[in-house]
Design a protein around this nucleic acid. Structure first.
Lengths: 180, 180
DNA sequence: CTTGAAATACTACTACG
DNA sequence: CGTAGTAGTATTTCAAG
């Protein structure tokens, strides 16, 4: 059977699936001071070598490496990625979009979600409470290319009744790092 | 003088500052097929070793490493970070917030922006067009902790006239990767 | 169950063609 | 850009707390 563990608490795959919510909370509370220091560092800069990381958290290299691998296997670290500068990569425009679906066809929600993920440059898509059904954020080259995307794709996503676009004029903060 | 280059095009610091917008566009257009393959891979998984990356893009290891370093120095790669699973890390709740400022005090915008970045769990903060002045996204533990944050901090951010909260019920898509 | 020391295998990095 | 060599790192093994 496939098993994974964090800080000495073994968790079977079946057990994790049965009590997903509490298992995730326990995952977090099982972290000690050193694990959090590791996560804080890797959230800021994961290109650091393992020996340097080990020195920072005052641990030997093998012990440090084992913890990092455990954090990856447990799913707490979803992955290690390079962050690209959007402007430099030719996607300097960001638009936040509020979407209202046609409520008379409830089956269209699944269709919409499937289609929305395939929109080029779609970075986020969330179901929300309030006057909108979904919020999406889309990165695109400029207002021309967004206008094309809007006219050719967004308006024709399945089940869409209304779309409101909020163009981002200035990005104050955009981070992947949250407090531990 | 400090200089950096991408694909053979030298760019002085002064020149880059003077023509920032076009320089960034050129940065992107100077990328060849191999650079884009490297970026696509590193956006998906940057924990790959350099030799494995080199094999994927059909290049020798040193040549591949030189390109990666050039992409970092040019600023196109802003950094390499570990992505943490928010639910597993005890921040399973996501709220999108639309903020309207008091327009009678235009100097409060700078104050608001400075304060907003310090809000615990604030992941994004953007100036937008439309009925709101700012959109923020905030990660927090649960509705209780968000309610506390809302009552104790958000309402008292400098210059705030109105705040509308959109609670995220389901995260359909959340990525840091965009098409190249 | 976790840690740290030593040994091995692999990788990053440099110099050169 | 590639080849070859060196330095440093990751990774395994093992003994000890």
């Amino acid at each position: 059977m496939s098993t994974t563990k964090v800080r000495g608490t073994p968790v079977t795959a079946a057990g994790a699936a049965a009590t997903a919510a509490t298992a995730e909370a326990d995952l977090f509370h099982a972290l000690d001071r050193i694990d959090r220091a590791i996560l804080r560092q890797l959230q800021t800069d994961a290109s650091i070598s393992n020996v340097a990381l080990a020195a920072k958290v005052k641990l030997s290299a093998p012990a440090c490496l084992r913890r990092v691998e455990r954090l990856k296997e447990s799913g707490l670290i979803r992955g290690v990625v390079a962050l690209i500068d959007p402007k430099a990569a030719g996607a300097g425009m960001l638009v936040i979009i509020g979407v209202v679906l046609d409520r008379s066809m409830p089956e269209s929600f699944a269709e919409f979600e499937k289609a929305a993920q395939k929109v080029a440059g779609c970075m986020e898509c969330h179901v929300v409470t309030g006057e909108f059904d979904y919020f999406m954020t889309i990165r695109t080259r400029d207002s021309d290319s967004f206008n094309r995307l809007h006219a050719e794709q967004l308006l024709y996503l399945p089940g869409v009744r209304q779309i409101r676009s909020f163009m981002v004029l200035k990005e104050i903060l955009s981070t992947t790092k949250f407090p531990l």
